[in-house]
Design a protein around this nucleic acid. Structure first.
Lengths: 338, 338
DNA sequence: CACAAAACTGAAAGCGCTTCCAATACCCCA
DNA sequence: TGGGGTATTGGAAGCGCTTTCAGTTTTGTG
């Protein structure tokens, strides 16, 4: 079965290629009569435009690249990334874009793929997941010809286009809630301090304590890396060395680890330890006890990211687009007050 | 900054486009001297081939599409899919293919995207996640012009190319192990019976019981849908109505739910109930107690899938490629014997 | 040293589409 | 009815690359 081309349709309808193209793309300057007739031929022949050819001629690929840098090694461990990916994929498809996924597992792959991605005419725009401050992937992408948007505030490229949630106020609200329900000594399992999410959530924690005149003690803050295991270890450390009656974890995944640690210490949540997470991933709702947490609109995040990127693609960048989405405190059982 | 084209390089090097093309693609019939000289110009000008143009001329897109049908609604809930996606993405990149991700969230999206996918010259091949027997997406894809491979045995299109793990023998080994450690009444939380994974694992369970002359009772089999919650409910049902001393769950995620149910019944794993899962997802290793399970080589699955698909792309299909990968019993604490 | 064969190189024809520009058809109002 | 304007259509030039084919040079062999 031969591929039906624009030419075939034109011949069949007895018009020129240009006219068929106009009909296919829903452009003006075609009489209703001709348009109808061409449309009939399109349906009859089962014509589908050849997207590659279209790309070449129009200089638009209709592709968006989603990049997870080499330093994101827990792509599938943390439900956050898949969920984000899903949201972005959905939004792309809704907007007639195709999503190309690039997971850079190794340094070499990164080296090989970046030039292709940023120069090959492969994609119209790139969404790249923010990483640690020491990762210079953004600089490499910046040197390319393709507009890009960072998912998460990029610490080392503050002038970039990015989209993020309000981590500071989210964390602030989490801690403020713990204070509100009467907790006196609130520990924190923070994220990595070389990431903006880690830093900003820590900032919100400090801000809430300071405002209520709670002492801010270094010993109350233990750094994790957003994995369950790191949450477990961090909570253990907190429980061994400090008399905390509440823990704010910078992610739900780490909170799950913390919960496990609390149980290992024969303590219970929320009676002995109130626990608040961050993310509101699905497992948190069904956990026992269910987890109070800060909801990120991950799905909406993806949709918005695509919206903004498409806007940049269509209209150019400056001024830098920097979008911050709000969060929401979701109160469940783990903090002892409904 | 203007995009550097083949022509620019040709002009700079004082040769024809054809020659530059040969150098770029590492084709023979170019003298070492000219090749070196052209390569210098390429480096000097920072030339990168325009992939879209190449596609149009060579009739190969260098793209592989990964499709998650509408009926897969737990793409991000179940760590399995992200992990598979990651493996496939990696393998694609290793083989100089780009992965395009299609998550069909809605019927309409599916209707819109499939023609584009199967006719638009958008991808060279498709990997599509197997779904229930009542989903007719495979028939739609089959009608296209693009070769495809199903991830999982497709119940309703047995002649398709597919890759799967040996679910029957995996389940068999799981149950055989439970019998070996002395369990007498083994319940099963099965997967959906309209999927091959659900069916095959159930088959393995039955086979193991039958071989050891254990009775096969319908009441011992409760159907889940691979989610944690369904595992929880199924286990509750099993514990309420039956005096089981072991449960084989058709997935780790459901096993996690089952573990929760067991604890709710004030029973303990493995003392009262031995538990075996299927998948060997990362959380199972750190769970308490750690979960005995059947390891699927998800990563290798993805790599192999891409290998096979590329082979089909390059060499055509018949005979149908049907690849089955082995599984491995991973013994941990949850079945009471190390 | 001659000649066939092999190796190398360039010209040119597309791949299927968009889009600019010129050409034609149509309309309105004086 | 004629002239200016507008709406519609077709012609043709690319987009940047691959690939075939023919022409040219080099090599190998008797």
């Amino acid at each position: 079965m031969k591929h039906v081309t624009l030419d075939d349709v034109a011949k069949e309808a007895g018009v020129s290629r240009a006219t068929v193209s106009r009909v296919v793309n829903d452009y003006p300057h075609v009489s209703d009569h001709v348009r109808q007739q061409v449309q009939n031929c399109i349906d009859k022949l089962g014509y589908n435009p050849h997207l590659i050819a279209r790309s070449l001629a129009s200089k638009k690929t209709g592709n968006i690249g989603l990049v997870f840098p080499n330093s994101i090694h827990n792509f599938f461990t943390d439900p956050y990334y898949p969920r984000l990916t899903e949201g972005i994929a959905h939004a792309c498809n809704e907007n007639d874009y195709t999503l190309s996924l690039f997971i850079f597992h190794t340094e070499e792959l990164e080296k090989k793929l970046i030039p292709r991605l940023t120069r090959g005419g492969l994609v119209d725009g790139i969404i790249v997941q923010a990483t640690g401050i020491d990762d210079n992937i953004l600089f490499k992408i910046k040197n390319g010809e393709v507009p890009f948007l960072v998912a998460g505030r990029p610490l080392n490229l503050p002038e970039a286009n990015y989209i993020d949630v309000d981590n500071v106020s989210g964390a602030y609200n989490a801690v403020a809630h713990l204070i509100r329900v009467g907790r006196k000594k609130i520990g924190m399992i923070s994220g990595p301090r070389n990431t903006s999410a880690g830093l900003d959530r820590l900032k919100g924690y400090r801000q809430a304590l300071r405002e209520r005149n709670y002492p801010i003690e270094d010993g109350l803050i233990v750094e994790g890396d957003f994995t369950e295991l790191s949450g477990y270890h961090a909570a253990n450390q907190l429980l061994k060395n400090q008399e905390v009656d509440a823990i704010f974890s910078a992610s739900d995944t780490m909170a799950a680890g913390a919960l496990r640690a609390v149980k290992d210490h024969s303590l219970s949540v929320p009676e002995d330890i109130a626990l608040v997470g961050f993310d509101d991933l699905p497992p948190s709702r069904t956990a026992v006890p269910s987890l109070t947490t800060i909801r990120q609109p991950i799905r909406r995040f993806g949709v918005k990211a695509v919206d903004v990127l498409i806007d940049i693609i269509d209209n150019g960048s400056p001024p830098p687009r920097q979008v911050i989405l709000g969060t929401e405190l979701v109160i469940r059982e783990s903090c002892g007050s409904i």
